[in-house]
Nucleic acid binder design. Structure first.
Length: 481
DNA sequence: CGGGTTTGACCAGCGC
DNA sequence: GCGCTGGTCAAACCCG
């Protein structure tokens, strides 16, 4: 555990009792002169407390004190001029006075930090409990599904997917938890299926064979589109790759057009047939920004360190693919208002890319971060591009409407606006999703997961303070309108 | 020696 | 049909 430095002066060594995630917040969000750096490698799981030493001596104070201690050291080789300086009563008095002032200010800061610590701890508890509740709910649904599995013909359920509320689709897209038995439920035993069974909606209008075929086709189509849906994460990092808790193997590298930096291709190696892949490329405009694009959903249990990113990417992909929701009145602002009612945008639903892409921009504006409360600055912000940007993208519409084949014709705007708005409403309507997503982003930014190591921590240090060029379509694959 | 990386080749999709 | 580009493959290479 590294020591942090409080540069505001004062003296002494204090211990903060804080949870790792709260400390991660401190690490990220404490503006100068507070700067508490720490390594997340040895952090325990969230919920446990850990004592952290914070060295709050300023450098100048250290020098002064070392001079005083040197004067008090009998065996030390003290020069005469040192003695004359250190023994000046006026300066000694000043040092003493300054020390008292610093001590007072330090105590004020300590109180402030304790308050913030309490607040962060409360937030952590809330987020953790919500996450656990969601996980328990998922597990309970899976157990119920296993109990009813034999009673229901499997093919008939695929027909109901369009009728399933997107919040439930999100449940279905959740990454497999650490329970090994859950991995087999990725396709056939989703909680959505269980919910469909409970709904008992009429699906028997088709013959079993036709229903099975249609269900299989729809499943395949959904898997294909799910694989094409992408989640792009922009983060400042000097590391060649961000540590997201998963194991990746590089299988290719290409020079992309319009970007002098090569694009690297990785696939997940935590399971043999895991379809998840990611592309890593530095931003052409700002090479300190690392753009990591995830594609697909893991079909295997994930370590806790990987849950955060996987949850985020999976949920975002699910959001993109939940366009079957009939509602149309959810405006773009609804998403921003509901999920994260803060001003600056950090996440973008980008339809400018060849594939529907959600961009999570973790390179926020430093000024904005300083202007808003620290906790708010750590939250992701959803920004929905202007409608014309969205409905000009025929591929995005094609994803949502399988019948669309005229890729080069400007489509009429309303259906696509509905799609994106519906997707926005879909994820925001479920408070569990909001909490899970917030927890996921928090984990990523705060480095709370044990697997988020120095690379991610390096990200964290630059996340809040970096500048933002969060454009409407900030994906490197974006086409100019 | 096994696993990961590098890198040129290959293929598919798309625009002209 | 041709060229361009993105994505993937696989042999060679590297490393612990």
């Amino acid at each position: 555990m590294d020591k942090g430095h409080l540069g505001s002066g004062g003296g002494g060594l204090l211990a903060l009792d804080a949870s790792p995630r709260a400390l991660g917040f401190l690490n990220l969000l404490s503006p100068p002169p507070f700067r508490a750096t720490m390594d997340a490698d040895d952090l325990p799981q969230h919920g446990r407390r850990r004592s952290v030493e914070v060295d709050f001596f300023s450098d100048e104070k250290k020098k002064k004190m070392s001079r005083v201690s040197a004067a008090e050291e009998p065996d030390h080789d003290i020069k005469k001029e040192d003695l004359t300086i250190n023994l000046l009563p006026a300066e000694n008095k000043n040092i003493k006075k300054n020390t008292e002032e610093d001590l007072a200010s330090m105590q004020v800061e300590l109180g402030r930090m304790n308050e913030e610590n309490q607040r962060l701890r409360g937030m952590l508890t809330q987020v953790t409990s919500s996450y656990q509740a969601l996980q328990m709910h998922l597990f309970a649904l899976m157990q119920q599904q296993q109990q009813h599995k034999a009673a229901v013909p499997p093919a008939s359920h695929q027909l109901q997917q369009e009728a399933v509320p997107p919040a439930r689709q999100f449940l279905d897209q959740l990454p497999v938890a650490s329970e090994p038995s859950n991995s087999s439920t990725e396709v056939g035993g989703s909680p959505r299926r269980q919910l469909q069974e409970e709904d008992q909606s009429p699906e028997e209008t088709l013959p079993p064979q036709a229903a099975g075929k249609a269900g299989l086709e729809q499943q395949q189509q959904q898997e294909a589109t799910m694989r094409k849906a992408r989640v792009s994460v922009r983060a400042r990092s000097e590391a060649p790759i961000i540590a997201d808790g998963c194991q990746w193997r590089k299988y290719g590298q290409k020079m992309a057009k319009g970007n002098p930096c090569p694009r690297a291709y990785y696939r997940c190696t935590m399971a043999n047939a895991c379809p998840v892949r990611k592309q890593v490329q530095r931003c052409a405009e700002d090479r300190s920004i690392l753009i990591t694009t995830y594609e697909g959903t893991h079909n295997h249990p994930l370590p806790p360190a990987a849950m955060a990113m996987a949850s985020t990417t999976s949920a975002a992909a699910s959001m993109l693919l939940s366009g079957s929701m009939p509602s149309a009145d959810a405006s773009s602002n609804f998403l921003a208002r509901t999920v994260l009612p803060c001003s600056s945008s950090m996440a973008t639903i980008s339809a400018s890319a060849p594939f529907p892409t959600v961009t999570l921009d973790l390179t926020t504006n430093g000024a904005a971060a300083a202007a808003v409360p620290p906790i708010s600055a750590a939250r992701p912000h959803f920004h929905v591009p202007p409608p014309q940007v969205l409905y000009n993208q025929s591929r995005f519409s094609g994803l949502q409407m399988s019948s669309s084949s005229s890729d080069h014709v400007r489509p009429p705007p309303p259906p696509h606006m509905d799609t994106v708005s519906a997707a926005a409403a879909a994820i925001t309507a479920d408070p569990n999703f909001t909490m899970a997503l917030a927890a996921a982003i928090t984990s990523i930014i705060g480095g709370g997961a044990s697997g988020q190591q120095h690379a991610a921590a390096g990200n964290n240090n630059t996340t809040v303070t970096s500048s933002s060029n969060n454009t409407t379509s900030n994906n490197t694959n974006s086409e100019t309108q």
